[in-house]
Amino acid sequence: MKNSHYDWKNLLIELTKKEISVRYKKTFFGFLWMFLNPLSQMLILGIVFQNFANLSIKTENYFLFLFIGLIIWNFFSNTLYTTIPIYVNERALLQKSKFPREIILISVLFSNLFHYLVSLLVLLCFISIYFLFSNGMGVVLNLIIRTPLILLTTIWLGLLTTGIGLFLSSLNVKYRDINFFTSAALPLLFYASPIIWELHFVPKAILPILYLNPLASIIEINRYVFLNEGLAFSKGILLGLIVTIIVLALGIYIFEKESPYFDDWL
């Protein structure tokens, strides 16, 4: 059956607005939590790994380095934590009418994407000012030239998260184990992604395995833009893109197959 008479666009906009406006209702700090969260994570992790952990190599600008990884990770993990059980949690909505089911998931993704882009923008301003005073105009120009890469990786990150979200949220309707599994797996993925550590520390032999995780490339490209670092892993990026396409195709396939029958399991 077609959903042709649904005002898809407006419904998505309204649901996204709801997600954004409702999240910080009744909080004292409101939208500031968008920064307070990664900021506090950055401080804690930064202090621990810079001072207490006995590492032989130190990373330059470690706090900024961490912050970039953390906002990418927060987008990814927050979106998945919310979307994977979403069809179970929103069962009342599903039983109301036959609106396109993917809208619920995409609205969560868009609201998180909004927060992510605002964080990136603030970071961009902060880093530009910081570099202007410490390194001069040349570095800032470099940064500005590279900014389109930020948008490209944002789309990449969005597609990757959509693929995993569609796949796991569809399966979670039938098999509620999925939610528990991801709660256990996501913290592991946090340490398996180059968020608190640099790819340079990794032995060459293991690198290809790490690049199977598209987050590695996404984080690396953003550090290349923001921290004016070198970029030398084109094969890694290609591998990450291939994995993303496979995950997205699989997610859409499973969602198309399962979503007409969500109601039967709720």
Partner: peptide, 25 residues
């Protein structure tokens, strides 16, 4: 009553609920 959000105003809920049951903006 399905599809209402407790934190949003009646007006905003009309908009959301109307779209959900297939009305246009």
């Amino acid at each position: 009553m399905a599809g209402f959000h407790p934190e949003m105003s009646g007006f905003d809920n009309i908009k959301l609920n109307g779209l959900l049951i297939g009305m246009s903006g």
